[in-house]
Every structure is written in structure tokens, then in C-alpha cells.
């Protein structure tokens, strides 16, 4: 475990806590894409199947449980919670996320480390996570008013994989030059998708104006 990875995990955890805070404190999920949350739940379930079979460390197992339960809780809130579900922008959150699931699955069948159930699920979760933010970014462009917490949620979510890229560079040079093409390429794509969001977020912060993504 190196500092970059720990920073990445904490940033990721923080993004989830910010979203939970927003939903719990404001009892509203306006501006939040339920489709992206559903995709993240699939990502975590598909990736953390080894939770019960391979014990890496207490930290690793605890974080897996936290990510799976928090993403499930957020989806549950947005679907079932009587107050929260009413604030969901159903007609704005229209991205056909099934396409993302299908494409990631096909890609995982072709590009994986081993053609085994676990490795195909793992590769699927890596590819799906790279594009899972798309429904959320589309929703942000549509909904004019991006509230601060939702903006911060997306910011931390984008930053976490950037820290992971630094972690991969660090590990490449310190742990023998093993190449991990799948997470590297997917991680770069994932972080690149946030590039314009980071840019407009920075502008809104610099000019001290509300964050607005151009349509």
C-alpha cells in the first residue's frame, strides 16, 4: 500500500460520504443520476466477488464492504425512500446505461487476464467503472443548477482514479515492471472523461460562480 493508493481510496470513500450526506441531509437526490449509482453497485459487486474467498487485508475487506453497502444504500434511497425518490429527475436521467453494461461485458470477454469467471467479472467491473460516470455527467449538463455537494461528489470521484494512476506508476517502478494494461487503459479513459468537468469546476471555483456545464 503506498500513499497514492491510500489517498485514492480515501478520496473515493469521501466522494461516497459526500453523496450520502447530500441525500441524507437534504432528503433530496436532485441532480444525482440513479443510473450511475446502479452502475457503481454492479461495478462493486462484480469486482469484490473475492470478498469471501481471498483475504488480502482487513483494510481491503472493510473497504469492499463499505463500497458495496454504501452504493446499495444510495440506490435503495433513490428507488424506495419515500421522500428521496420523489426528487429523482427521472425524465432528465435518460442515458441508456444498459449499453454501457453490454459493451463492458463484451470487452471483458475479449480482453481479460484469464478466461475465468472471476477474471472476466473483474475486467468487466474495470471497464464498466471507466464509463459509469457518463449518465451523471450528461445529467449535470442538463440540470442547470448543480448543487455544491453534487459537484464535490463528482470532483472527488474523478480525482480518486487519478491518484490510482499515480499509484500504478509508483508500483511499476518499485515492484518490478509488471504491466497491468487493463486497469491502466481503463483508468486513463475514466479520468479523461472528467477532464471537461474538472475544467469547468475549476473555472467556477476561480470566478466564484455557480458550476454550470455547457450543454
Amino acid at each position: 500500500m503506498n500513499a497514492f493508493r491510500f489517498l485514492g481510496d480515501m478520496t473515493h470513500l469521501f466522494s461516497v460520504l459526500v453523496l450520502l450526506l447530500k441525500i441524507y441531509a437534504t432528503k433530496s437526490c436532485s441532480g444525482v443520476s440513479r443510473k450511475t449509482q446502479e452502475l457503481y453497485m454492479v461495478v462493486f459487486v462484480a469486482r469484490y466477488m473475492d470478498l469471501f474467498t481471498d483475504y488480502i487485508s482487513l483494510y481491503n475487506s472493510v473497504m469492499k464492504v463499505v463500497f458495496i453497502t454504501s452504493s446499495a444504500a444510495i440506490v435503495w434511497c433513490m428507488r424506495r425512500h419515500p421522500q428521496v425518490r420523489r426528487t429523482y429527475d427521472r425524465d432528465q436521467d435518460t442515458f441508456r446505461h444498459v449499453v454501457l453494461v453490454a459493451a463492458s461485458f463484451v470487452l471483458a470477454l475479449i480482453f481479460n487476464e484469464r478466461f475465468t469467471f472471476r477474471e472476466i467479472c473483474w475486467a468487466f467491473s474495470i471497464y464498466l467503472e471507466a464509463v459509469a460516470i457518463l449518465p451523471q455527467l450528461v445529467l449535470l449538463q442538463r440540470s442547470r443548477n448543480v448543487d455544491n455537494l453534487t459537484g464535490q461528489y463528482v470532483l472527488f470521484l474523478g480525482a480518486y482514479r487519478a491518484f490510482y494512476i499515480l499509484n500504478w506508476i509508483y508500483r511499476y517502478f518499485t515492484e518490478g515492471h509488471t504491466s497491468r494494461w487493463i486497469p491502466w487503459i481503463a483508468g486513463l479513459v475514466q479520468t479523461a472523461l472528467y477532464a471537461d468537468f474538472f475544467y469547468y469546476y475549476f473555472l467556477s471555483w476561480k470566478n466564484n460562480v455557480k458550476l454550470e456545464l455547457p450543454a
Binding site: 493508493r5 473515493h12 481491503n60 469492499k64 463500497f67 487476464e113 499509484n167
Partner: peptide
């Protein structure tokens, strides 16, 4: 065969 590198990251 080489040990399948466990995915030790989140």
C-alpha cells in the same frame, strides 16, 4: 503456472 496475481487493489 504463475500464481494468478490477486487483485490487491480496490
Amino acid at each position: 503456472i504463475d500464481k494468478v496475481r490477486a487483485h490487491d487493489e480496490l
